[in-house]
C-alpha cells in the first residue's frame, strides 16, 4: 500500500473501467487537495459520470487504486469502504431523492440510518440543513412537488447533513438554464466554504467550472489529459485542451448568434 501525500484528501491512480468491449476509463488519475473544489470536465460521453461513480464506489473499477485520507480503498475491504461512504456524500445527476418520503424525511434518512443520534437531534440537524438551503418551508412536501432547483438544493441538504469531508457532484447543472447553472455553482462554492468540505464536480459547463474551481481536470478518451489550476488551463498549449477550448468558443459564438436572431442554416438546406 502506497501512502499518498498528506495534503491530498483523495488520490486516484490509474482507474480502468470497461463495459463489455467498450473501454470507458483507461487509467484515469486525479489528485484532490484537502478543502479544494476540483472540477472534472470533458465532452459528454467521455465517461465523466462513470469516473465519479468509481470514486464513490457505486461502480467498482476494474483496475486502479483510490486513496482516501491516505488509505487505499480495497474492493474486498467492506469496513474501509463503509467508513469512506460515511465520510463522503454523492450528489446524483438525477438527485436520487426518495420519492415516497417527505423533504424532511429525505434529509433525515442518512442520519437515522447511520448514526445513533436521538430523534429530536436528528430532526434539529435536518431542519438546520434545510434552513441553510432555504427549504425550511417545504419540509412536508414530497420531492415531486418541488421545482427542479429546489430538488437540487434538497439533494444537497441531504448530502451535507452528515457533515461529510468530501462531496462528489455528478453533473449538478445538467438540464438547467444558464442562470440557474451559475446559481448552482455559486451555491456549491458558498456551501463549500461554509461547511468546509472538499468537492469534486463533474460537469461540461466550462465557463462556470473555471470560475468556481480551484483545480480543473480534463477527461478525454478515458484518461486525464490535463490537471491544474483554471489559469493554467486557460494558458495550456496541450492539443486536447486547445481543441476543447476552441469547441467551447465556437459553441458560444453560435449561441450568441442565435440570441441575436441570426438564421442558422438547417442541415438539409
Amino acid at each position: 500500500m502506497v501512502l499518498s501525500s498528506p495534503d491530498l484528501l483523495l488520490q486516484v491512480k490509474g482507474v480502468h473501467k470497461r463495459f463489455g468491449a467498450n473501454v470507458v476509463l483507461a487509467g484515469a488519475d486525479l489528485d484532490v487537495p484537502r478543502g479544494s473544489v476540483v472540477t472534472v470536465m470533458g465532452r459528454s460521453g467521455t465517461g465523466k459520470s462513470v469516473f465519479l461513480k468509481c470514486l464513490a464506489q457505486v461502480i467498482l473499477a476494474d483496475e486502479g487504486q483510490i486513496f482516501f485520507d491516505g488509505r487505499a480503498l480495497a474492493d474486498n475491504d467492506a469496513k474501509s469502504r463503509l467508513e469512506f461512504r460515511r465520510r463522503c456524500s454523492f450528489l446524483f445527476q438525477s438527485n436520487a431523492l426518495f420519492d415516497s418520503l417527505t423533504a424532511l424525511e429525505n434529509v433525515a434518512l442518512p442520519l437515522e440510518q447511520t448514526t445513533d443520534l436521538r430523534d429530536a437531534e436528528i430532526r434539529e440537524r435536518s431542519l438546520e440543513a434545510m434552513r441553510q438551503l432555504e427549504l425550511e418551508s417545504h419540509q412536508d412536501r414530497y420531492p415531486s412537488q418541488l421545482s427542479g432547483g429546489m430538488q437540487k438544493r434538497l439533494a444537497l441538504a441531504r448530502a451535507i447533513v452528515t457533515r461529510p469531508e468530501l462531496v462528489l457532484f455528478d453533473e449538478p447543472t445538467a438540464g438547467l438554464d444558464p442562470l440557474r447553472r451559475n446559481a448552482v455553482f455559486t451555491m456549491i462554492a458558498k456551501y463549500q466554504r461554509q461547511f468546509g468540505f472538499t468537492a469534486v464536480i463533474v460537469t461540461h459547463d466550462v465557463q462556470e467550472a473555471l470560475a468556481a474551481s480551484d483545480r480543473v481536470a480534463l477527461l478525454d478518451k478515458g484518461r486525464m489529459n490535463f490537471q491544474g489550476s483554471p489559469t493554467e488551463f486557460r494558458a495550456s498549449e496541450d492539443l486536447v485542451v486547445t481543441s476543447f477550448r476552441d469547441n467551447i468558443t465556437a459553441l458560444n459564438a453560435s449561441l450568441a448568434a442565435i440570441r441575436q436572431g441570426e438564421i442558422i442554416p438547417s442541415e438539409d438546406s
Binding site: 467508513e83 461512504r85 456524500s89 446524483f92 438525477s94 436520487a96 426518495f98 420519492d99 440510518q113 447511520t114
Partner: peptide, 25 residues
C-alpha cells in the same frame, strides 16, 4: 414494482453511497 422504480431512479445507489445497506433498509 416499488423496488424496481427505486433501483431505476438510483435511490438504491443513493442509499449505498450514504453507507446505508440497501438490502438492510
Amino acid at each position: 414494482a416499488e423496488l424496481g422504480i427505486q433501483r431505476n431512479t438510483e435511490q438504491v445507489a443513493a442509499l449505498e453511497t450514504m453507507g446505508v445497506s440497501s438490502l438492510g433498509y
